[in-house]
Amino acid sequence: MSLIEIIKEPWPWYVAGPLIGLTVPILLIIGNKSFGISSSLRHICAACIPANISFFKYDWKKESWNLFFVFGIFLGGIIAAYFLANPNPVEITPQLSEQLATYGITDHSGLLPKELFSWESLFTLRGFIMIVLGGFLVGFGTRYAGGCTSGHAIMGISNLQWPSLVATICFMIGGFIMANLILPYILSL
């Protein structure tokens, strides 16, 4: 198998995890930046819709590195999808596949199920909750918590900050409750 074929295969966790972990020292060494992605949402608010709210009155231009970083993530997504795409459907566990089939979700051709995340779905109640309410909770929750998976779970814990461990445990508890107890009702809508 050629190198490009190996790269096109899905990468195992023990390759992806350490590469993500390395982002922490890379950002510190190239510019004293603490890894954190959800702050970009705040900078976008500060730049576009500050509305005289004190939380958005700061020099966001000084933090523009973060916007370059997330724009890079977007470009990385394009490169990976168009030049390094895995030709095979996403492999998912048989249990999940069976569960999802009961909600009419059978399309595993992409990384997100088309039945839930598409423009057609947006105009259904189920799709609206998933796309709009889900996004709102991500934006509100991460800022209220003071960070997301990158800022707390990876950067904060890397710096041995116990509040980040608390936040990470709460992310997981929230995720367990939603995925197991509430999401089944949303998916049956």
Partner: peptide
Amino acid sequence: QIYGGLMFGFGWAITGACPGPLF
């Protein structure tokens, strides 16, 4: 970190994404 953390957890399980993966 507790209240916001739980809310983000809800959103993470719904959308399947943290802020980075959205981009």
